[in-house]
Design a protein around this nucleic acid. Structure first.
Length: 528
RNA sequence: GGGGGCGUAGCUCAGUUGGUUAGAGCGCUGCCCUGUCACGGCAGAGGCCGCGGGUUCGAGUCCCGUCGCUCCCGCCA
């Protein structure tokens, strides 16, 4: 680190360098001083050379000197500024909620903080300010937001930081789902338009019911940049010469879905997809493709089902010479995830994905309950505090044994999805204690359990709660998309590694015996 | 907790069918050059081939185990 005093001058003719931002000037040095000597760096700080995460994280302060990461972090700051300004301009007010709070029994694993004053008792770091923001609504603050830190002791993913992350947490009183959308969508769209760097942003986020998303895209977080849309083609295979599928279709509820692959009409591609599927643990991936001179369709399936049925499939999917189609068969619930992967794979392999876009949608109408096959009972399928999409009277009148009817109930719950990334989820909250009691009863929890675990919340709701709802877009994921990064660590200042270790600060770390004594804690470590 | 990939110089990587002394580029050190700007030239240092065990006359290479990093599943609003 040096200090240089001197005069900035124009470079002499012939030494100008238009490739450099400073290529027209130079400094004539009068004096130079070393302010902080530097040893050899463990990693160079220029260029886009890739380095192992371990070194990058251990020397994060060097990594942050690099242009890309520096720009990402600066972008993050500007995005947060923009979000905050947009929220305030929409009449939201920013609040701070506690970091040391109580452990909550549902959801993710808590980070616990032992209490010195109360031996044997623990605080927990909030998984989200969920209960506080609902209490704010009860308290009469009708438009809350916060750039809120959230703490969850769960395993990491590339798009999920271990330990902690940030949400744009917001909540509103006296609102419907549509009111929340009208408040949030302009903020998210505005921020993306502001920082999209020329990429197109969905002008009006379409609403896609959960069931439709699963049927068309095989995912509740579809990447709409991928034009591939799946269809049910069971009728083309029912009773056909392709016995494997014909037999599967004899079981009620089973189906055959088609994944169309425009421009994939060659054997090399179809074989590659088939081996990919086998690598994914599937028996294989049936296909038909069409090429010049074989308009009746090529591949083993086409031969088995004959030209008429093959044409039926081509017509239904709008496919022709040069195209291919893949099939998955069985119980949709079991194969839908793989079908979604195959759809993504087709899009990627054939270069069908429009990379220069931010494609948004709302996923709505999530099922309220789901069937737990192992325990043979009804479970909450997502958040137990969402309002069911029924009138209070209808919901209270439900028969807890009418499984078909219960499983068809939707919750007023919604996600924002962008380019296949789940950006946020929210809900209209269940603000009626009697509805909550009924919902928990359906899921098999006695009233005492509800009372014991959520008594405070329940009590608050019983003292005059407005209908309210909100959402919580993930800040890190927003910045990740805007920065064009695949990994959250590229948009976080001091991230932990996948094992939730901070290699720079050395966290987590052992503490002294004295500290433990003060906290009345004795360690009982696993034997190794 | 489970599965996949990776692990060779400070960094990025190569390393044949198992064969003698493990290489390259960048970086680093010294010297030379001095209108260069990813300068150039000469010379040089730097290796527990992640670790442990096994097979073999011989292992960076094959096998088993283990550790680390990473991606995914489980988990997670």
């Amino acid at each position: 680190m040096v200090r240089i005093d001197g005069k900035v001058r124009r470079r002499p003719e012939g030494t100008l360098n238009p490739d450099l931002p400073t290529g027209e000037v130079e400094v004539y040095i009068d004096e130079i001083e070393v302010l902080g000597p530097a040893a050899e760096l463990p990693m160079p700080v220029f260029g886009d050379q890739e380095y192992p995460e371990e070194i990058r994280l251990k020397y994060r302060f060097l990594d942050l000197r690099r242009e890309k990461l520096h720009a990402n972090i600066m972008l993050r700051g500007r995005v947060i500024d923009s979000i905050r300004a947009r929220m305030k301009a929409s009449g939201f007010f920013e609040f701070q909620t506690p970091i040391l709070t109580a452990s909550s029994p549902e959801g993710a694993r808590d980070f616990l903080v032992p209490s010195r004053i109360h031996p044997g008792k623990f605080y927990a770091l909030p998984q989200a300010p969920q209960q506080f923001k609902q209490l704010l609504m009860v308290a009469g603050f009708d438009r809350y937001f916060q750039i809120a830190p959230c703490f969850r002791d769960e395993d990491a993913r590339a798009d999920r930081s271990p330990g902690e992350f940030y949400q744009l947490d917001l909540e509103m009183s006296f609102v419907t789902q549509a009111d929340v959308f009208d408040a949030v969508e302009p903020v998210i769209r505005g921020v993306f338009e502001e920082f999209a760097d020329g990429k197109a942003v969905t002008p009006k986020f379409p609403l896609i019911p959960y069931a439709e998303a699963m049927a068309k895209y095989g995912s509740d977080k579809p990447d709409l940049r991928n034009p591939v849309i799946m269809q049910d083609v069971s009728e083309a295979f029912r009773g056909s010469g392709f016995k494997i599928f014909a037999r599967i279709l004899e079981t009620a509820g089973n189906a055959v879905w088609a994944i169309p692959a425009k421009s994939g009409g060659n054997r090399a591609f179809c074989d590659r997809m088939n081996s990919w599927a086998q690598g994914e643990g599937q028996p294989g991936l049936g296909y038909i493709f069409w090429r010049e001179g074989e308009e009746g369709g090529a591949g083993p399936l086409a031969k088995n089902i004959g030209p008429e049925r093959t044409k039926m499939i081509a017509d239904q999917l709008g496919l022709g010479v040069g195209d291919a189609v893949f099939f998955v068969a069985g119980k949709p619930k079991d194969f839908v995830k793989f079908a979604g992967l195959a759809r993504t794979k087709v899009g990627e392999e054939l270069g069908l994905i429009a990379k220069d876009r931010f494609e948004f949608c709302w996923i709505v109408d999530f099922p309220m309950f789901e069937w737990n096959e192992e325990e043979k009972k009804i479970d909450f399928s997502h958040n137990p505090f969402s309002m069911p999409n029924l009138s209070v009277e209808e919901f209270l009148a439900l028969d807890a044994n009418d499984h078909d009817k219960l499983l068809a109930i939707k919750a007023i719950q919604y996600d924002i999805v962008c380019n296949g990334v789940e950006l946020s989820s929210g809900a209209i909250r269940n603000h009626r204690p009697e509805v909550m009691k009924k919902a928990f009863a359906i899921a098999g929890y006695p009233e005492e359990t509800l009372e014991e675990k959520f008594g405070g919340m329940l009590h608050a709701l019983s003292l005059g709660a407005p209908p309210h709802g909100g959402i919580a877009p993930g800040i890190d994921r927003i910045v990740m998309l805007l920065a064009g990064e695949e990994n959250l660590r590229e948009v976080v200042l001091f991230p932990m590694n996948q094992r939730a270790e901070d290699l720079l600060m050395g966290a987590p770390s052992e503490v002294t015996a004295k500290q433990l004594r003060e906290l009345h804690i004795r360690l009982d470590l696993p034997k190794k």
